[in-house]
Design a binder for these strands. Structure first.
Length: 513
DNA sequence: TGCAAGTTGTAGAT
DNA sequence: ATCTACAACTTGCA
């Protein structure tokens, strides 16, 4: 009987029954997968599949509560927007490759529409789901809309290997013209039929539903997820056209925490709450209106191109998420011993005894966000600078905690900071004392994130172990009791690690000669 | 083959 | 604030 009904429908309607599968791209604006469905289909089913581990990308870490919360808020907002257009978000739980094929059968889907993803895990997953759709006779539409350009288009313009430096990448981009113009949101969507809605609609789960404890106020990110919030933030940032146009990344400060000195659009770009193409065209417009503007690599457009560059690298180079088998990553004998693991644990838990490092790691855990230069400082410290722990381990911790954790960018930046790829001046090390002090001589940032140290005078706040015992007593914090002693002697560690880097690099020189 | 440049170092001198 | 030494990497281009 069901079969007969299907035949009747197929006979009477030429149009499609389309499942729009959301992964990143959690927005209704500039969403080609959604827009196309809205134009051609008699039925549109917007679906998100919440994997139990939220981000099961290769390292299998369960993501932190802030990151999970950001995703759930984005889904909530997406559901609201879809309802505003007359539809609903069907939020399922499980693995997409398990959950979607039966759903597509149940809904008699003729077309599957989803955003293309460049990252290996999601690319494979997309291919699996697309294959099952095709097997049941449905067509598949898989547009690129997360990055400015289609990575295949970029590769075709390369004429050889993918670029390994930013300069080369800029040359490549110069050959590509402008990215596709952003699309409007659909004006309306067909309603999800009542029977499907009653069978399949659940409101987006809460953190507690997923087995998380809701973080205390202090551990909750101040950046809420969602397209509405992302677009609001974008508009807000563009109020000051001059600042946007003249933005130079190295001139921003890692210790500004009341109002961050950068835009904090990264979590919204990562989840696709804000389209990178919308950002691109707004930047171009701001540059035009202001007359003068900064340029890549330091400008805001330059930041967007860094993202694009690293996404292309993650797409083009195999095993981009690890050291072994990664053709652009130097093989460095990091300390993988139990002692190294203990140092990693102390780093991740803000127990290194270097206040600037521990304050940054605390901000990361509490807010799920860090200024780029603070990321540099802690990454250099963990790897080639002080602790000699593999960048892969640091990457995992960032993956767990950052609300903007972005596979391609995260791997690329960790390789950069550990001098494993892209950047090779290993003798330039960030000081865990001097670098923070340069931006914040009073130590306000440390006082904010490490309140145990807040009564230390500014002379000692970056190096509390140097304070005379009387000063420690007066500050109410004894180093070694209330706050750890330094995990390593920075001067010694840096010296030893630089020669280890020299030795690791020497092998490449020999290989080349 | 040689030289300049590379998104964002530090410490110390001027 | 701007300079230089530090000890010296790689990539890209002439």
């Amino acid at each position: 009987m069901v079969t007969i009904k299907k035949e009747e429908e197929k006979g009477s309607h030429a149009s499609e029954r389309c499942l729009v599968w959301f992964r990143k791209g959690l927005r209704v604006h500039d969403n080609p997968a959604l827009l196309e469905a809205s134009k051609s289909a008699e039925a549109v089913y917007p679906v998100f599949v919440l994997d139990p581990s939220i981000d099961p990308t290769e390292n299998g870490v369960r993501v932190g509560a802030n990151r999970a919360q950001f995703l759930l808020e984005s889904l909530e907002d997406l559901d609201q927007s879809l309802q505003g257009l007359g539809s609903h978000l069907l939020c399922l739980q499980g693995r997409p490759e398990d959950v979607l094929p039966p759903l597509m059968k149940e809904l008699d889907i003729t077309r599957l529409s989803f955003e293309f993803d460049t990252e290996p895990y999601w690319k494979d997953q997309g291919e699996k789901v697309a294959a099952s759709a095709k097997q049941m006779g449905a067509s598949v539409h898989c547009p690129t809309s997360h990055t400015l350009f289609d990575p295949e288009h970029l590769m075709a313009k390369c004429m050889m290997d993918a670029p390994k430096s930013y300069g080369q990448f800029l040359k490549l981009v110069a050959k590509c013209g402008k990215p596709p113009a952003p699309l409007d949101a659909p004006s309306s969507l067909p309603a999800v039929p009542e029977d499907v809605l009653s069978r399949r609609y659940r409101s987006v789960p809460t953190l507690e539903d997923l087995g998380y404890e809701r973080p205390e106020e202090i551990d909750r990110t101040p950046f809420p997820g969602g397209e509405s919030e992302g677009l609001r933030r974008l508009e807000d940032q563009f109020q000051d056209i001059r600042r946007i146009a003249m933005f130079e990344k190295p001139k921003t400060s890692p210790t500004d925490f009341v109002v961050p000195s950068t835009t904090v659009l990264s979590p919204y770009l990562k989840h696709g709450c804000v389209s990178s193409r919308v950002f691109y065209y707004k930047l171009k417009d701001a540059y035009k209106r202001n007359g003068r503007h900064a340029d890549p690599p330091v400008s805001l457009l330059g930041q967007l191109y860094w993202r694009e560059f690293f996404y292309l690298c993650g797409y083009a180079f195999p095993n981009f998420g690890r050291m072994e088998g990664n053709p652009i990553c130097r093989q460095i004998p990091w300390d993988r011993s139990e002692e190294g693991k203990e140092r990693l644990r102390k780093w991740a838990n803000a127990q290194t005894g270097y206040p600037w490092i521990d304050a940054a790691m605390t901000q990361l855990r509490q807010q799920g966000w860090l200024h780029h230069l603070a990321r540099h400082a802690v990454a250099c410290f963990l790897t080639r600078g002080d602790l000699w722990v593999s960048w892969e381990e640091g990457r995992k911790v960032f993956d767990e905690l950052l609300i903007d954790a972005d596979w391609s960018l995260n791997n690329a930046n960790w390789m950069w900071l550990s001098c494993s790829s892209f950047f090779y001046q290993y003798f330039r090390c960030y000081s865990p004392v001097a670098f923070g002090r340069k931006y914040d001589p009073q130590g306000k940032y440390i006082r904010k994130f490490l309140p145990v140290l807040k009564h230390f005078p500014k002379e000692f706040i970056y190096e509390p172990w140097k304070a005379p015992i009387a000063v420690q007593k007066k500050a109410g914090c004894i180093v070694g009791v209330d706050y750890p002693k330094p995990i390593v002697d920075h001067a010694e560690a840096v010296k030893a690690n630089k020669s280890k880097m020299a030795a690791a690099y020497a092998k490449y020189k020999k290989a080349k000669a």
